[in-house]
Amino acid sequence: MSSRSRSGRQYWVALRAMAVFTLVLGVGYTAVVTGIGQLALPAQADGQPVSDADGRVVGSALIGQSFTDADGNALPQWFQSRPSAAGSGYDGTASSGSNLGPENADLITAIGDRRAAVAKLEGVSESEVPADAVTASASGLDPQISPEYARLQVARVAEARDLPEAKVAALVESFVEGRDLGILGDPTVNVLELNLALSSMAG
């Protein structure tokens, strides 16, 4: 057998193997995992949708949202999420970080502006503003903020909603999630879930 026909045969073998693998791994594997996921763990498989008091789905517990007006100004009655680089902010079709480098002039300006804006909104000094409040996350869809940033917003939210500050502060503390297994990642507060609880408290 010549070497050319030998390698020709290899391609025929490769083509058939790839066809079978495409069926087994592309179709079969995905179907099995989807079937098990949808049957045994439907809430997780569908992305943990959350509903308001009227039963209307308002988003996913895992996907962050903006709580701003059309011009991007913070709505004072809501806890605010982090800055987002996904589209024009928390765009679920365009997950992304800013990818701006540590010496990038635009990033430096943006951080300065955000720090001043947050300090003004919360009525605190700029040195009290935590890092997550002035930086965009990796996904642009970060559903969470640090407990420090949540606590910083308590007074302003309580005032806007005419609620006792202590009550709002207690609500925030009840939404602080610790590290997984005590050591993985950082403690967080889920902004959408906190705001949902807040809205039913006010209502």
């Binding site: 498989a45 308002v58 988003g59 996907i63 705001n195």
Partner: peptide, 27 residues
């Protein structure tokens, strides 16, 4: 999946967010 990674064929779902904005959630 048990840990929260999604597994569906839902495409994009449009929702009105809590503060009244629009968001498209991927599947």
């Amino acid at each position: 999946v048990a840990g929260g990674v999604i597994q569906n064929f839902a495409g994009f779902t449009d929702v009105t967010t809590l503060s009244g904005g629009a968001q498209s959630i991927p599947g």
